Each structure stands twice: as structure tokens, then as C-alpha cells.
Amino acid sequence: MKIISNTNSKNSLSQLEVFIEQFDQEGQVLAAGNRNQIKIFDFEGRSITIKAFKIPNLVNKIAYKFFRKSKAQRSYEYAQALLSKGILTPHPLAYAIDDKGIFFGASYYFCDYIAADLTYRKLIEEENYPNRTEILKAFTRFTYKMHEQGIHFLDHSPGNTLIVKKESGYDFYLVDLNRMEFGSLDFNTRMENFSRLTPKKEMIDIMATEYAQLGNYDLEETKALMWAKAEAFQEKFWRKKAIKKKLKFWKK
């Protein structure tokens, strides 16, 4: 197992390797999905998270071995890039890849654990959540700053921003970082970047109003395009879900 870390301490690297060896048996489960699993471990007096990526299919085993950076490596490098641009994300510690075999194998991403108060999804589920409108406006300012820094977060979705309440407002931390682009974003791309967040028009209106003010864009044009992008995403999402449901039916 090859570990790339921002620490040169042999003891620290050894401990990270132990975490990998014990990953299936130890640690507190934070998220257990079909593809990836995230666990919390105690490391040098603080809590960290380790994300274990699903071993890829044969094509990607070859691609990640010889042609592309792994999801773990991209997560680590993108986290460093975000922090350098003033965008918060849990502090990256290391990434590890199984580099011994002919094909790419297991991979892991290590970062600090953030005890979030909520994610964006909570704002969708609870319309009466305290200070909901203020949080949405602050989230929009965060997204605008991200866009102005030339960051296109391709997985800008309800569960991928951790929100921490502060005395003076809110901090927003991006997670699930392996799909990201960097460069100037035009207006269409900026509006597209809101499309995955919510199916609720009243939330879109709040964000569009705030974004238009920040960027000095036409308000009605911003509202119309942001909502059109959200509607198009929802239509595509439910169409794909219906197709999968039909395929499962015919497999029975």
C-alpha cells in the first residue's frame, strides 16, 4: 500500500497504514454506501475520516493504474487546491493506493473530521428549519465565491456541503471532491452548477435573487435559467430512475 501524506512522521504514516489494515473491523461508520464507505478514527488526539473507495471495474483498474489519477488522489489534491483559494474543506491528511498488483486496487482518502450541524439536504426536508432563508443566502454567497475563484464543483449536490453554525454566521465545507474542474465559469455554467441542489422553486428563487445581486446579473434572467437547469436535472433524474425500475422488472 502506497501512502502519500503531508506529514513526514514515520509514526504517523505507520498509524495510517494500521487504519487501512483494520478498516473493515475498526472505526465508527459515518457513511456506508453501495460504492464507498466512510469511517471515523482517532488519530493523534483528533478525529479523522477515512473514505474507502469501491474497487473499480476492470476498465478503470487499468485506467487508474496507468492513465488517470485515482479518486483518492484527486480528492487529496483538490482539497489542497480549494484551501489555497480560500474555500473550506476538511483538512486533507493523505491518500493511499494499492500499487502492488498489475491492476489498480483499493484506495483511501484521509482528512479531518468536521462535526457539521447540517447539510443542504436538511433545508430541503425541513421548510421551517431555523434561519433557513439566511442559510440559503449564505450558501449562495459561498457558491458565488467558489465560482469567482474558478472552481467548478461537479458534485454540488445536497449532501456534499457540510454546514457549521458560527456565532457570526455559517461555515461551508465541500466534501466528496473527486470531480472538479478549474477555470473561468460563464453564466450558463454557473446556473447549471445549482441544478442538482433542490427541486423546490422557492429555494431556487432565494438563491437566484442573492446570486443576481452578487454578480450584478439580471434578476429575472437568473431566476429563469437557474430554475430551468433545476427542472432539466430533475426530469433527467426521474427518467433514469424509471428506466432502472423497468430493467429490474424485466430481470425478474
Rank of each mutant, 00 (worst) to 15 (best):
L136A: 03
G159W: 02
N36G: 08
F172H: 04
M207Y: 01
N128G: 12
I135H: 02
N34F: 01
I48K: 03
D112S: 11
I135P: 03
F41D: 05
M1R: 02
V59S: 13
I97A: 13
E220R: 05
Q73L: 13
P199G: 08
A72Q: 06
L13H: 03
L197R: 03
G101L: 06
K248E: 12
D176E: 11
K245L: 13
R35V: 12
Y64Q: 07
D176S: 12
W238I: 12
Y173C: 10
I206Y: 01
N160T: 07
F194V: 00
K251R: 15
K166R: 15
Y95V: 09
R68F: 14
P158N: 09
L185D: 03
W238T: 10
I3Y: 04
A72M: 06
F194A: 02
G150P: 09
I135Y: 03
A81I: 04
N34L: 11
R239P: 01
K71A: 10
F249S: 00
R74Q: 14
Q234G: 00
V29L: 09
F110Q: 08
V18R: 13
K51W: 01
Q28E: 13
S9H: 01
S5H: 07
M203S: 08
G215A: 15
M226C: 09
I151A: 10
E235G: 01
L93M: 12
K65C: 03
K246P: 04
K10C: 02
D171S: 13
L88T: 00
Y113N: 02
L30P: 02
W227F: 13
S107P: 07
T89L: 13
Y144D: 12
K165Y: 05
K252C: 06
K100G: 01
I3K: 05
I206Q: 02
S12E: 15
F194G: 03
T161K: 01
F23Q: 12
E148C: 15
T222E: 05
T89E: 12
Q25D: 10
M180Y: 03
F110S: 05
G169A: 12
N160W: 01
K223A: 08
S70N: 03
Q15C: 01
T161D: 03
A72P: 05
T133N: 12
D205V: 11
T222V: 05
L247C: 00
E17Q: 14
I40A: 15
N57G: 14
N57F: 04
